[in-house]
Amino acid sequence: MTPRCAVLDDYQGVARSLADWSPLDGRVDVRTLRRPFASEDEVVEAIGDCEIVVAMRERTPFPASLLARLPRLRLLITSGMRNAAIDLAAAARHGVTVCGTASNTEPPVELTWALILGLARSVATESAAMRAGGPWQSTLGADLYGRRLGLLGLGKIGARVARVGLAFGMDVVAWSRNLTAERAAEVGVRAAASKEELLETSDFVSVHLVLGDRTRGLIGAPELARMRRTAYLVNTSRAAIVDQSALLDALREERIAGAGLDVFAQEPLPADHPLRTLPNVLALPHLGYVTRRNYEGYFQQAVEDIVAFLEGKPVRELG
């Protein structure tokens, strides 16, 4: 019997056009699913007959409870080489091989700057006014030159964001628990003495940390209270790093100038969620990694992962 493969969360309907799937012709029955699932039951109903699943990032979680309900599953592929939404230990217990693909770091860097610039110059507000025939100029832009950019995290993405900030003439500082002065100097920035110093002195704070036990809820009400009223918070990393309730309160009460957000505790974000309508929020539907080049790499390497698995020599395994 021909094994079945489901490509999940293909929101834009591009998975089959951005890669050469012909190596699977006659070997695998491939289908694509475009809409997100509302429940674990929906996932089981949609892919319970599949031996192979291609997941897009963390859009559909695969906890132990779901993996136990997918007895036919043998190969699970995720875009990227890290996926916190997959229980790797449970996958191993159920005999599921988990593989990944490469992922470019440039797209989330570029989107970070789209958010920073959009906030600084009120791009969405002014564009909406232009389209609606509203007032000609209603806002004053926030300068980047000479202002401080505080980066929480200075890994591959954070370092690239830092270099762009320096090109804008910003004073760039960074902090993470393991950041050394030497590492910061390599990037051309200064290591903040503490998280508190960074929050208290930065005009823009951008989050570039990996979500884990030490970073979950790292920015809560006390940390947001340290930020300047004129400061902006940008998060293109993971929503859970910032306490969502505390952030909502800070934005509603205008205790910070605004936030640029590409990640949310629940995705897709409910239609009636206040983050969709707060005037000091620039929100995007998790587009950080959503570019043609990334998708071409994801899907082409997913095909390669499937072929390698069928030939008994899986590559790019996670774990």
Rank of each mutant, 00 (worst) to 15 (best):
V187I: 10
L152R: 11
P270F: 11
L144H: 07
D25H: 14
I86H: 11
I256L: 15
L144D: 01
D249W: 00
T101R: 06
A38K: 14
A142R: 11
I256W: 11
L278I: 03
G260A: 15
T125D: 06
H273I: 14
P23I: 13
R34S: 12
N104Q: 10
I219D: 03
R57H: 06
V53K: 13
A162V: 01
L247Q: 09
Y232V: 08
G118R: 15
E267V: 00
T139V: 09
E110K: 06
T32R: 03
S122T: 00
D87C: 06
I47D: 05
L261M: 12
A68T: 05
T236I: 07
E197I: 01
N104T: 03
S206I: 08
A90Y: 01
M81Q: 12
Y298C: 04
V315Y: 02
L166Q: 15
A265Y: 02
A68L: 14
L149F: 07
S202K: 12
L119A: 01
D41Y: 11
T215W: 02
W113Q: 05
G48M: 06
R229C: 07
V303N: 08
R16N: 07
I256H: 07
S138P: 08
R34A: 13
E110G: 06
G220Q: 08
R177S: 11
G95V: 06
V123W: 13
I77N: 03
S127V: 08
L318C: 05
S39T: 12
P268M: 02
A15V: 05
G141Q: 07
R238Q: 10
R183T: 06
R316K: 02
V210W: 05
V207G: 04
L166A: 03
S122R: 12
T2R: 06
R238K: 11
R160A: 15
E196Y: 09
R27P: 03
L149Q: 11
L67Y: 08
G169W: 14
P279Q: 04
G158D: 01
R74I: 14
E200T: 13
T105N: 08
D243P: 09
L198S: 05
A91Y: 08
A221W: 11
T139C: 12
P71A: 15
V14H: 10
R59D: 00
V210F: 09
E304F: 04
S237N: 01
